[in-house]
């Protein structure tokens, strides 16, 4: 049985088509990434699959249960972590967890035991009885995820779980996601952090303008655009580097400045390495490092969503 089945899901808001008949399935125990630029239809898809809104066409199933007709039983199987850390700031961490457990009809003994465990796992046990008003952004996010897990869900919807968080919170959350995957929990992850999807997901779907642009494992997706390889080069910062001159090297199709490095996109890396060496020699520049890189998931994303055509070329 599939954990999630979306069959020709459509959603219209008046004249605007938010979803144009998307279909995909997620297997039990899989970590599935759902990527797309803002307004692509990610949140609408989650809202339909969690029964918060009804599709105008098609259907969705959670563990075989229809998300419209069997909404309540379907919801019992899932945990939802919304994009915003929607906790009750007038309540303590403990009260937030217990309230959520009561909403999901978790028995007294089990909810207290799970609340204790989750507070420990997310590093919040020491602040258990503090009002969450004073929590940092990372602590609020961790508590939000803990609330999503209080009912021991078989499927967890994670909407931008690590967006804008500190390193400690990021590490804790990613570690929990890996642990959940090990326990067989299915994870549906939407994120803007493509590297996160790359390292966490078994498969990813890229959605753009309400349609699925691609769906596959990260590595197979990268192979689809082998023509997008790149040379990453860092020069000694004591001398000025002319990006426009680097861009004119033969076979370079695009250039991106990435911190102290330049990434030269090309279909012919050896030719570009030679060109970079020549340029460095001519300009009296010292090369600190030079690497050949395959296409990244971000490259796939940019190519499939057409973000490069819009003058971006940056991180979505």
């Amino acid at each position: 049985m599939h954990a999630i089945e979306a069959i020709s899901l459509e959603k219209r808001f008046g004249t605007i088509q938010a979803l144009a008949g998307i279909s995909f399935s997620v297997e039990e125990g899989e970590t599935f990434g759902f990527l797309g630029p803002n307004g692509a239809g990610k949140t609408t898809t989650i809202r339909i699959l969690t029964g918060m809104t009804e599709p105008t066409g098609g259907s969705g199933r959670i563990f075989g249960r229809d998300v419209v007709r069997e909404k309540i039983p379907a919801r019992r199987e899932i945990g939802i972590v919304h994009e915003t850390s929607n906790i009750y700031t007038d309540l303590s961490a403990w009260e937030n967890l217990i309230f959520t457990a009561r909403l999901y009809n978790v028995g007294k003994r089990e909810r207290e035991s799970r609340a204790h465990d989750l507070l420990s796992v997310f590093g919040l046990a020491g602040r258990k009885d503090d009002k969450t008003k004073g929590f940092s952004k990372g602590m609020k996010r961790r508590l939000t995820i803990a609330m999503g897990l209080i009912n021991n869900p078989r499927l967890l919807f994670l909407d931008e779980p690590t967006s804008g968080l500190d390193v400690q919170s990021n590490l804790i959350i990613r570690d929990v996601i890996r642990r959940l995957t090990g326990e067989g929990v299915t994870i549906f992850l939407t994120t803007h952090n493509i590297e996160e999807a790359n390292i966490l997901c078994d498969r990813v779907a890229i959605i753009n303008r309400g349609r699925i642009a691609a769906i596959d494992t990260p590595e197979r997706l990268k192979k689809t655009i082998q023509s997008v390889q790149s040379i990453e080069v860092a020069f000694d910062p004591s001398a000025a580097v002319r990006a426009d001159e680097l861009a004119e090297i033969d076979q370079v199709t695009a250039i991106r400045k990435m911190g102290d490095k330049y990434r030269l996109i090309t279909g012919d890396p050896p030719a570009v390495i030679g060109g970079v060496m020549d340029y460095a020699g001519r300009s009296g520049l010292r090369i600190i490092s030079i690497n050949t890189l395959g296409p990244s998931l971000e490259d796939v994303f940019i190519r499939l969503t057409g973000l490069d055509e819009k003058g971006g070329g940056g991180t979505p």
């Binding site: 039983p73 919304h82 609330m147």
Partner: peptide, 14 residues
């Protein structure tokens, strides 16, 4: 405003 109402709307409650 704080999006906590979504919690109620997405819970297994009619």
């Amino acid at each position: 405003r704080t999006k906590t109402f979504e919690r109620l709307l997405s819970a297994p409650v009619s």
